[in-house]
């Protein structure tokens, strides 16, 4: 019975780590310039290493204007398919994690009055370092035992590498070949995970992102020094493990972007805001090493929650993970 509980805890830890890395940076760094927002980390806390493959699909259904109004997409279709390979290893008593991801993207764009186009290319890669600052209790919160209230606390640092084609280097008339943000992004975040019971984990995470400045130019040759706005993402998730094979959960994410700067001047009205929510279902189909996780998330399709988002819609992803 005790052994069963410990094993279940291990899987919950693995699944919780998974739930946090389900929407890696590549998922939202689409042809537009509102990138990042992803969480770092790949390897479950009780595992030595992991390899992952994530197949993701996103369809744009609308956009948010600067005033927060939602507008359905008119006369256009925008679809992104992403295959992201990732890997990570844990060192020093599992306290340090090194991880990386590399997405390949297939993007289709079709607008009124022009021929549709589809392009394949690398997206922006990510490299991350995770450090377990506090190894928490896995016993589930019990009121009279303060030791069970100690949460796991992880520090994550990372960088997004502009391996995807930048907007200013696009050759496709619809911009279907724009696969990345075009700039390095530094990331730093904290993740707090609390076992509220033997079967349930609540996780709160915060991620700061800072895109580095670069020179950009328009078609006619006008050149600008552009720096994307810094951003902070907040994410809350709840995860429930039914048994050693099945677990599921719900999550909400919000991302607040500060204004961008052009030629050192703040671009008025360029702050952004996004909000999405979703659910995931995880299945360990070969104990304890192979796991599949299906995740769905969606942005609201009414005015208010978002601001300055050129493409919002549903996202679906399937993550396959081999742990070691």
């Amino acid at each position: 019975m005790l052994r069963h509980a410990i094993t279940l805890t291990c899987y919950l830890l693995v699944a919780a780590a998974c739930a946090c890395c389900l929407e890696p940076s590549g998922a939202s760094a689409q042809a537009c310039c509102v990138g990042g927002g992803g969480q770092l980390g790949v390897v479950g806390r009780e595992r030595r290493a992991a390899l992952t493959a994530r197949l993701g699909y996103q369809r744009a259904m609308g956009s948010y204007a600067n005033d927060g109004s939602y507008h359905g997409l008119r006369g256009a279709s925008i679809d992104d398919l992403t295959l992201e390979l990732g890997g990570g290893v844990r060192l020093f008593d599992h306290r340090l994690e090194l991880s990386g991801t590399l997405p390949t993207r297939l993007q289709h764009r079709s607008y009124r009055g022009s021929q549709g186009s589809a392009r394949v290319g690398l997206g922006d890669a990510s490299l991350g370092v995770g450090l377990m600052l506090i190894r928490g209790s896995v016993d589930g919160v019990r009121r009279r035992e303060p030791g069970t209230w100690i949460p796991f606390l992880d520090l994550n640092l990372g960088v997004l590498v502009p391996s995807g084609r930048a907007p200013e280097n696009s050759h496709d008339q619809n911009g279907a070949d724009v696969m990345g943000g075009g700039h390095f992004t530094l990331q730093g975040g904290l993740r707090l995970s609390q076992f509220v019971s033997l079967r349930q984990i609540l996780t709160l995470s915060v991620l700061f992102e800072r895109g580095l400045a670069r020179d950009v130019h328009s078609l006619a040759g006008a050149s600008h020094r552009y720096r994307p706005g810094a951003a902070v993402s907040l994410r809350a998730s709840w995860l429930y493990a039914r048994d050693m094979r099945w677990s599921g959960g719900l999550f909400v994410t919000t991302r607040l972007g500060r204004p961008a700067h052009q030629d050192r001047e703040r671009v008025a009205g360029s702050a952004s805001r996004s909000f999405s929510f979703g659910a995931l279902l995880s299945w360990v189909f070969i104990l304890p090493i192979w796991e599949a996780t299906l995740s769905m998330s969606v942005d609201p399709f009414f005015s208010g929650p978002g601001r300055n988002l050129p493409q919002v819609g549903p996202r679906l992803s399937l993550l396959m993970k081999r742990s070691f």
């Binding site: 911009g175 600008h224 360029s270």
Partner: peptide, 9 residues
Amino acid sequence: PAHGHGLRQ
């Protein structure tokens, strides 16, 4: 200006 890019055509 918010995204630092221009037109494609």
